[in-house]
Amino acid sequence: MTHPHRTISDRGVRARFLLAAAVWTVLVAAVLVAVPLAFAGRLPDPLAGHWGPSGRPDRSMPSSALALAALVWVVVVGVCLVGMARVRGEIRRAARTWYAAGLGWLGGFLIGTQAVTVAANLDRDDWTRAASLNWQFAAVVAGAFALGALGWLAGRLGPDDAPREEGPPGPLIDLDPRKRPVWVSTATAPWAVALGVVAFAVALSFAVAALWGLVPAGWATALPLALAGVIGLAVSSVSVRIASEGLTMAFGPLRWPSRTVGLDRIERAWMERRSPLQVGGWGIRGLPGMATIMIRGGECLVVRYTSGGQLAISVDDAETGAALLNALAARKAA
């Protein structure tokens, strides 16, 4: 597949984005390592590492635990960066914004937490005498979100998703007027099924425990978990059908909800390989009109609407489906 419209600057965005992410990674890691080292002589060991609701320190940690933040940072960000660098071609704007926001938020949170901890322990001879903290944590969280928002904005820089191109016209399928052709295919993410089922099981346990009065606030845990289970199951599998009535998508093990797009709304269809890293994760990604239903990486059926919008669904054997959809749409238009 060729991208005739793709220019050098698109590649520049990818390189600049990866470079900026790497610089930010090193910068944050350097701060996380340098601050504890610089104040090593003025901190008690162990130092206060946890503050209770009253604002008083209530737990200690060895001073070496401060270095743990740097390790967490390097591992998490390293995995993300390597993942992004491995994606061939352009990195989608949706993916860039999510990564940049995540990097900004996590970096800000780690540095803020470390700064607050060091400041509260500075020049105390024992961790129990560390300063009380209350509003400071709210400030750290707010600051982290502010950095996340900045990252989000930085990630949006540069041109939008490159593959706005017309997909290659797939082979058409000869339609016999005496026959009813139908294409059916599915994609399943077994791990999402497992996660959804586990979430449901835990939610049910909490609900039963709450009914018996064993757990005081069982409902508060059960409801969000049940919701997570529903969402997990809904995006765990998809069944796609293309027939004379149009394109039908059905989600989850119950094949509900489902949605049908009429043939008259479809301009063309083609197959494209997409990975969760390109579109920013699993599930329904992107905005309406530019969305990807990502169950698993690999072959996706991409459909362009006559309204100009576009929808991609990860599903096996997408090329055949695209060919049939193009043939049916052409017959309908004729």
Binding site: I173, R178, K179, R180, P181, V182, W183, V184, S185, T320
Partner: peptide
């Protein structure tokens, strides 16, 4: 998977 049913079968 592409399937075809004959309408007059």
């Amino acid at each position: 998977m592409l399937l075809t049913l004959d309408l007059n079968d």
